[in-house]
């Protein structure tokens, strides 16, 4: 019998990376952040992360009617990222609603993976902030106690820029705040993995963090600049949220503009706005501008400018 040969159009080789492996890499990168959150805020942080991730994956499974919970891994990433933006221990049903909104309204209303305009995790967070603000913002912050499984509730508002906090505490993460945002150390370790695997490049985080630092510098000098970078959600936003592939530009210049834009809006809200923190809305606003940025920053074709160097 004659052998049957497969005929297809070239190329005949395929990179081993696929969507699932990229999403798995993001989860791996979030692992040190998650570990730090449990270390700082105890088992309640773990429960928040599990609830958020589970409800995100379950919502996706129901909408797609695919009962392989992990699927391409994107829902798990959305759920875990949402948890990272929340206080350590909101009521479980608030977390669940956040995840359901993130997946159903943040993602599938637009047609699912790849088609959403806004970062789904931030859509979930934005809805929670607006609708259940008393649970996810305000007097909900736990005092981090390493290995302390009985962390106390702080009775003051989110201390964003409090120059009495030491820079070392901000770097390590032993300050009150959202689950995933307090430890700069853990976030940077996670991001190094994503850089190493080639899933993010320097432009978005560089533009974002750079402009936050520069504006902080103008606001109150070098130390204030560093505070603005380390405190609040800037690192989490710049390294893990703004770099969301679907909702950020694909062109090199576009990525830089996008990053700078995120940082700019964040700082305008922080310095002049009514909210204590501006990362969420900074990124969401720039998400909306992404298609426009892409189309205005198409790269120059090879050979287009100089014909003879």
């Amino acid at each position: 019998m004659e052998r049957r040969l497969v005929v297809s159009s070239s190329p005949h080789l395929k990179s081993p990376d696929d969507i699932q492996s990229i999403m798995s890499d993001v989860l791996i990168a979030l692992f040190p952040v998650a570990l730090m959150a449990v270390f700082l805020f105890g088992y309640r942080a773990l429960i928040t992360m599990i609830v958020a991730t589970f409800f995100a994956m379950a919502t996706e499974a129901v909408i797609l009617r695919k009962w392989d919970l992990f699927g391409d891994g994107s829902a798990a990433v959305t759920g875990l990222l949402l948890a990272m933006t929340l206080p350590p221990a909101p009521p479980w049903w608030v977390v669940a609603i956040g995840s359901i909104v993130a997946i159903a309204i943040g993602k599938h209303i637009y047609g699912g993976l790849g088609n959403n305009i806004f970062n789904p995790a931030l859509v979930g967070r934005a809805v929670l902030v607006v609708s259940w603000g008393s649970y996810v913002a305000g007097d909900v912050w736990l005092k981090p106690v390493p290995f302390g499984f009985t962390a106390d509730l702080l009775t003051r508002a989110s201390p964003l820029i409090n120059t009495k906090t030491s820079l070392l505490d901000l770097f390590i993460g032993t300050v009150p705040g959202s689950l995933g945002e307090t430890s700069a150390l853990a976030l940077i370790i996670g991001a190094i993995w994503l850089f190493y695997r080639g899933h993010i490049d320097w432009r978005i985080p560089g533009g974002f963090i750079g402009i936050v630092f520069i504006l902080g510098l103008f606001d109150g000098g070098f130390t204030t600049g560093v505070y603005h970078v380390l405190a609040g959600g800037v690192l989490l936003g710049a390294l893990f949220m703004a770099t969301d592939m679907v909702t950020s530009p694909v062109t090199p210049i576009g990525k830089l503009i996008f990053g700078v834009g995120c940082g700019l809006v964040t700082m305008v809200i922080r310095l002049f706005g009514g909210l204590p923190e501006g990362v969420t809305f900074g990124i969401l606003l720039m998400n909306g501008l992404t298609p426009l940025i892409d189309n205005l920053t198409l790269p120059k074709k090879f050979g287009e400018v100089k014909s003879n160097a």
Partner: peptide, 22 residues
């Protein structure tokens, strides 16, 4: 044979294109 997924706009193709296309 791989199923074709939607574009996730990761931009990897833009990075690798030697002609600087999208």
């Amino acid at each position: 044979d791989f199923p074709i997924a939607p574009c996730i706009k990761c931009g990897k193709c833009v990075d690798v294109c030697p002609m600087n296309l999208v």
